[in-house]
């Protein structure tokens, strides 16, 4: 993986993390207001879920050159 590719992946990871945390926070606020009488629990849950999604996406993105797909192994 070249340095340029790594740079792009990290940039994408940070952007994705900002988007996911923001979306989780927003949805958490909506759920908190609508269903949970303005308690902070859904906000924390949404933010945590957003962080987890971002982490998972980033891990998948960084591991992608080393992943072995079953379709490739069947060809061999």
């Amino acid at each position: 993986m070249s340095e340029q590719e790594l740079r792009q992946k990290w940039d994408r990871c940070l952007a994705d993390c900002a988007v996911k945390v923001g979306a989780g926070l927003g949805l958490g606020i909506v759920f908190s207001v609508v269903f949970f009488k303005r308690r902070t629990l859904p906000v924390a849950f949404g933010t945590g879920a957003g962080l987890g999604m971002a982490y998972s996406n980033c891990q998948n993105d960084l591991r992608s050159p080393y992943l072995l797909y079953s379709s490739d192994t069947k060809k061999q």
């Binding site: 940039d11 994408r12 990871c13 952007a15 994705d16 988007v19 996911k20 923001g22 979306a23 927003g26 949805l27 909506v30 759920f31 609508v34 269903f35 999604m53 971002a54 996406n57 980033c58 998948n60 993105d61």
Partner: peptide, 23 residues
């Protein structure tokens, strides 16, 4: 409807998809 609409809008605009969609 309000909560579902919020989730639908977030999903439709690519906020909950993969890494590239988020970027």
């Amino acid at each position: 409807a309000v909560a579902g609409g919020a989730v639908y809008v977030a999903y439709d605009s690519g906020l909950l998809g993969g890494g590239e969609e988020g970027a």
